[in-house]
């Protein structure tokens, strides 16, 4: 079975290469079609004249025709060279290496919170359809979806930081006066555990809570609604009735038989939610000054800084591919019939 999974993963990864190449080319072209000349933008010092703009264009390689630029860029990517960001002045690879763990840590925590809320809520709603519980869950989900994350984020900050003073100031991953852990994995929560620094871990965790909750609220709805719908369908099927008839205990029926069968669509939606969160959490990152990849890419986009945007899109596409492959593998575990194919 393991060999089967490995073969499937390998095939899927290979098949995604053309798609990734397409993404690279399209982003590259798109950035150049957008109006706005990066050389002009970056040479906007008090005394930068025409010559300085031309010079900058030459250093950035923008004076060459676009096909030449594209081939040169593809060659550089092949060597793992993604260029330098003009907005931060650092090589893009370095920037992303530092910022990706921040985004991943936030997204994973938010997803965990969302799942731990959405699954029980969805199950509870499915077990008592049409009751007060069901309607309450529906209301919660609707609220979560219809309040934009920057509004809920600012509201949470206003309440827990400004008014109550419970939360630490909503800037960055750890209190600015405290020292961050040494970069081992880049995930602060893991690094602090590895260092055995529990005070640091608690500080980082407190800092993470508000933004993670903000994000979790937003994705609560698709997860809870999907769990509910899928549970309802399964609970109404024949084998559940059989289980009831055979006198199995209710918790056993719900968890072992119904939930396991209802999980497939939930896993699918979780994968999609995760990928969307990673790219779309830019508002949360901005509101909480979270040094993640999404706000990095947005800043770059606004200033026509090509290299970071291109690298970001490629990164997101790659993560999407990886998430999809992972979901495939998880399918096999949730439902052995899938992996036979």
């Amino acid at each position: 079975m393991l060999a089967g999974i490995a073969r499937r993963v390998g095939r899927r990864l290979l098949a995604s290469l053309p798609a990734l190449l397409g993404v690279v080319v399209v982003t590259f072209m798109l950035m150049r079609v957008l109006p706005g000349d990066p050389a002009v933008f970056f040479a906007s010092g008090p005394s930068a004249g025409k010559e300085e703009i031309e010079d900058l264009r030459r250093t950035m390689g923008l004076d060459k025709p676009i096909p030449v630029q594209l081939f040169r860029y593809l060659g550089e990517i092949a060597q793992g060279e993604f260029g330098r960001s003009m907005t931060t002045g650092q090589p893009v690879v370095l920037d992303i290496k530092r910022r990706l763990p921040a985004s991943l840590e936030l997204t994973c925590t938010a997803l965990l919170i969302a799942l731990s809320l959405a699954l029980p809520l969805g199950i509870a709603a499915a077990l008592r359809p049409g009751t007060v519980i069901d309607h309450t869950v529906r209301l919660l989900c609707t609220l979560g979806v219809c309040v934009p994350t920057f509004v809920s984020g600012l509201l949470l900050i206003y309440m827990f930081y400004y008014l109550l003073g419970w939360a630490p100031d909503p800037t960055a991953r750890i209190d600015i006066f405290a020292s961050p852990p040494p970069e081992i994995t880049g995930f602060y929560l893991i690094d602090f555990i590895l260092m055995g620094d529990w005070d640091g871990w608690w500080a980082a965790f407190r800092q993470l809570l508000l933004p993670a909750f903000t994000m979790a609220l937003f994705v609560l709805a698709p997860l809870a609604r999907m769990t509910r719908a899928s549970m309802l369908a399964v609970l109404g099927s024949d084998f559940i009735r059989t289980a009831h008839a055979m006198g199995l205990s209710r918790p056993r029926i719900v968890v072992a038989y119904a939930l396991r069968n209802a999980l497939l669509p939930v896993i699918t939606i979780t994968g999609i939610v995760f990928s969307t969160m990673l790219g779309a959490n830019v508002l949360v990152e901005k509101v909480f000054s979270w040094p993640g990849v999404a706000s990095y890419a947005l800043d770059a986009l606004l200033s026509s800084d090509y290299a970071p945007v291109q690298a970001f899109v490629l990164l997101m596409a790659s993560i999407f591919v990886l998430v999809n492959v992972t979901i495939d593998v998880l399918y096999g575990i949730a439902d052995p019939r899938v992996s036979v194919a």
């Binding site: 600012l154 900050i157 206003y158 930081y161 400004y162 003073g165 100031d169 909503p170 800037t171 960055a172 600015i176 006066f177 901005k286 509101v287 909480f288 000054s289 706000s295």
Partner: peptide
């Protein structure tokens, strides 16, 4: 001196009002 980038203007205002920045 700690120079910190805080993109959201409302958050910067909050930080000053709270006495944290």
């Amino acid at each position: 001196i700690i120079i910190q980038t805080v993109p959201e203007a409302a958050t910067r205002a909050n930080l000053i009002e709270r006495g944290d920045a």
